[in-house]
């Protein structure tokens, strides 16, 4: 304990620690806000500043974040759709209202499960990859190298991922909507002996544009969260390979937590 700390006493010390942590927290939030702002800034003004956001880089990221995630997103959406049908029919059978299961499937897939499952999967696949990539580049001085070459690192590394995410998250979520509803439909058709076309016609009657946009808007928000949490963790890496491992894990855990909590707030604000 230093002399100064000894004079302050334990309570003052704790207050100081809280203050210190708050400052760090505010700093991190500020950094994340700057990342979003800078990504937009370079996209709009980059060309005139000689720092254009390259279409090729965005397309590469779209492939990585979106296209390559299609099989796993589709598989999980199918499973979730079926699971909802199974649980829905089981629960509603208590009241003898099995035929109303379409309502449950339609709303929960489109408003909740699709954006959530897509968000969690993309956080696991791309959020971790982004954190690891930026972490390794920071340790190897590659980020410094970009800066001294006159290439803005946010424009070069973050903006393409951000735009790819803004485009691909709603696309993946929409795909997940269709596949999830199909999964539910397959089980409903088999169990309740109704035709798939009747199921789809019910679904289309139930779901409004508002429900669809609710889910898609959330997915966009999740995408932004995944990118800023991935980048902020990657850029804050300390130590060598072990540090990269830590920030990668932290990025995934924080993104998924942020997604679930944001989802709850979003649902609360929009449905009330």
């Amino acid at each position: 304990m230093s002399e100064q700390e000894a004079k302050q006493g334990p309570i003052a010390q704790r207050v100081e620690n809280i203050g210190r942590r708050t400052m760090v927290g505010v700093g991190v939030i500020g950094y994340c806000a700057t990342l979003v702002w800078e990504s937009l800034y370079w996209a709009v003004l980059g060309k005139s500043m000689g720092q254009p956001v390259r279409l090729r880089a965005v397309v590469d990221q779209m492939m990585e974040i979106g296209i390559r995630a299609i099989p796993i997103v589709a598989l999980l959406a199918l499973a979730v759709g079926m699971m909802l049908a199974i649980q829905g029919i089981y629960t509603l059978s208590i009241f003898g209202a099995e035929s109303q299961v379409t309502y449950g499937i339609a709303f929960s897939v489109v408003r909740e499960f699709s954006p959530l499952i897509t968000g969690i999967l993309v956080a696991g696949r791309s959020g971790s990859a982004l954190a690891a990539r930026i972490g390794i580049m920071t340790i190897n001085q590659e980020v410094d190298a970009l800066s001294v070459m006159g290439i803005n690192p946010v424009r070069f590394l973050v903006a393409p991922a951000m735009f790819a995410m803004l485009i691909m998250m709603p696309c993946l979520t929409f795909l997940s909507d269709v596949v999830g509803l199909m999964g539910g439909g397959l089980y409903v058709a088999l169990d309740l002996k109704i035709s798939l076309s009747a199921y789809w016609s019910d679904i289309l009657k139930i779901i409004s544009n508002g429900d669809l946009t609710h889910g898609l808007m959330k997915s966009v928000l999740f995408g932004v969260l995944i990118v800023i949490i991935g980048v902020a963790n990657g850029a804050g890496v300390q130590g060598g390979a072990e540090g990269v491992g830590k920030v990668t894990t932290r990025a995934v855990v924080q993104s998924i937590s942020a997604i679930v909590i944001t989802d709850m707030f979003f649902a609360f604000m929009v449905t009330r």
């Binding site: 500043m49 000689g50 720092q51 390794i136 580049m137 190897n140 001085q141 590659e142 410094d144 190298a145 800066s147 001294v148 070459m149 006159g150 290439i151 803005n152």
Partner: peptide, 23 residues
């Protein structure tokens, strides 16, 4: 300005300790 800083950096070259080549 930011643009002038980036323009200036195009006129300097740096060889980092570990190379810092993009893997």
């Amino acid at each position: 300005s930011l643009k002038e800083t980036y323009d200036l950096r195009k006129k300097i070259g740096v060889a980092f300790q570990g190379g810092a080549l993009f893997s």
